[in-house]
Design a protein around this nucleic acid. Structure first.
Lengths: 340, 340
DNA sequence: CTGAAAGCGCTTACAG
DNA sequence: CTGAAAGCGCTTACAG
């Protein structure tokens, strides 16, 4: 790399000392090795004036660490994941790490390939939003002692650390709120998937409906996670026209946006014709003609926690660190879920 | 790094040949060095079965490349930049590269630090959204022969390659459209900056106003790029109440969103009280009660072009590749700019 | 056609 | 207190 031409050797030569000495001083181990104060200071000054910056590649070769962590999300251009990415970046930087990101598009084969690529680039560990079917390959990672933390989604009955939302509680909050507002025929739109985060959200809804005695109104529509627009549209059409739903909960940010497009198109008014609860904050929700009630995830906590756990694992590879954190959701109430 | 314990040496030993031989074969230089076909095949087979994957760190130390490129945006959680990041990622992957991203928050000192970090991680080149005041340090990069391409913004009178929008044309389109619709007192809200992309956008507007004989209606408000909300609010207040503006053009995505929040708060109706043209696509614009007319950037082209140029530079470091591309904007017309 | 050896820039036992 | 030397895993002249 064209830059950073100043080497340890250069500053050693200029001072007439060994590179060992310089390396020790610059790594802050002068005291430990009882290096003379004056000479230590001279080294530090020289490094400053010569604008020395160490070649991390070389340093890593020797120690086996790159201070690089890999982040695999499903799509970095999804605002939910880019918000997470930003927090991961900030926290990683604070701890001296740099982030390599990549998008799996919810595909197992992409996830597999990205893991391989990131490992060959020498990342010290991985933060992964796992896609459907990825449990096996992620377990292998874990068994190979590659520090790994799941984010946003988790595998139940697994030893892999994760940081995600208390998903059951999220829909419980939403459903109970709608019931309190006087809605009864409350429907739900989620994804077709075996992933736990969605299943938990569905369960939180179903249990709340049952508890209120609304079993008969339980309607769960599952759409394809890739390109949901068309299926969301027909699901809404059925729910409104056939099932007489008076409220609908969307299980993700993308589903909520897709739903709002459809409702606008169908000329269905919120909350007069149907009440809406969405997932994850979005400027759109606040500025919509009927501000959308939504489940807010504590992203800052979720993402920071994931990074903290990962780096703890990286630094203490001999320890079996197992951190499973569910963070609490919050319901932000707007006009979209108010009875009129 | 727990994985990939298989070394070049291991496969050399298992075959009773030298690491040199293995290295050559695995780098596809068997023909070039006229290695025996059978032995070459044996090496390849062994590498496969032993699941060898090279230590890129070591390879890079030797003077090779990391196939890693750095992307510095101002904020990865800004939907505009995360959209770019995704396209950069896709194109880079297609070409065998992986992306390390980071956010500068428009701060020169962050940009500087990030460049240093990314270089010390061994990236082969950089794609940068330059912030105000960063011309000097980026020129240094360029002079040090670090492959560098600017994206979204450019420096005029500079030899640094870039891929960005034809910014002058963007506001020319917007202003002419508003004028054709019958608006006259058209204001503009941009950032306080010396950066060229904003200056060009201002100029495109001013020239169009002059050409239409509306010099007297030229109002350019510049707000602080960090935390623009409060300043946008007071700018709009002045423009509407003091200057009687009948239309306003926002120069970025974030400014447009901030403007919509303010207009809602002030209970100003679009387009009845004021017409609006925004910048960059956003679900919000489409779903707003009065769908927002906006300038659409050909992001796919802009980002792909940046990656192509960067990788061309990386691969042909002896060539002086200078690629300066302005892509054409498109005006997507909604209800927000229609005369009522 | 193939191998021994040097070297990338750094860190860290090991001596003294 | 300080330095000579080995080694991290790989590539690439240089020999033969």
């Amino acid at each position: 790399m064209a830059q950073n031409k100043v080497l340890l050797k250069d500053i050693a030569n200029s001072l007439g000392v060994s590179t060992t000495l310089v390396s020790i001083v610059l790594n802050g181990k002068a005291k430990q090795y009882r290096i003379g104060e004056e000479i230590a200071q001279k080294v530090i000054d020289a490094a400053m004036t010569m604008n020395y910056s160490p070649n991390l590649i070389a340093r890593n070769l020797r120690g086996g660490k790159t201070q690089l962590i890999g982040l695999i999300v499903t799509d970095i251009s999804n605002p939910f994941y880019s918000a997470i990415a930003r927090i991961v970046e900030n926290r990683a930087n604070e701890l001296g790490y740099t982030v390599v990101f990549s998008s799996s598009d919810e595909e197992l084969k992409n996830t597999k390939k990205l893991i391989e690529i990131l490992l060959s680039k020498g990342v010290d560990g991985l933060i992964i939003v796992p896609c459907d079917g990825s449990e096996e390959i992620i377990r292998e990672l874990h068994e190979n002692n590659t520090p790994t933390v799941l984010i946003d989604r988790n595998f139940p009955n697994s030893d892999i650390s994760f940081s995600c939302l208390n998903n059951y509680r999220a829909t419980e909050l939403a459903t109970q709120h709608l019931i309190e507002e006087g809605f009864e025929n409350i429907a739900l739109i989620g994804y077709k998937t075996r992933m736990n985060h969605i299943l938990d959200r569905i369960k939180g809804y179903e249990d709340s409906m049952k508890k209120a005695g609304f079993e008969k109104y339980i309607h769960v529509k599952k759409v394809n996670i890739l390109n949901p627009q068309a299926e969301v549209h027909s699901a809404l059409d059925t729910l409104i026209k056939k099932k007489n739903a008076d409220a609908v909960i969307f299980l993700t940010n993308m589903l909520t946006v897709a739903g709002l497009y459809s409702l606008n198109e169908m000329n269905i008014k919120i909350p007069n014709d149907i009440a809406v609860v969405g997932f994850n904050r979005n400027d759109l929700f606040n500025l919509f003609y009927s501000p959308i009630t939504f489940i807010k995830q504590p992203l800052e906590i979720i993402a920071t926690q994931a990074v903290n756990t990962l780096i703890e694992k990286i630094k203490n590879s001999e320890l079996e660190i197992k951190s499973m954190v569910f963070s609490e959701p919050q319901l932000i109430i707007g006009a979209s879920s108010k009875k009129v």
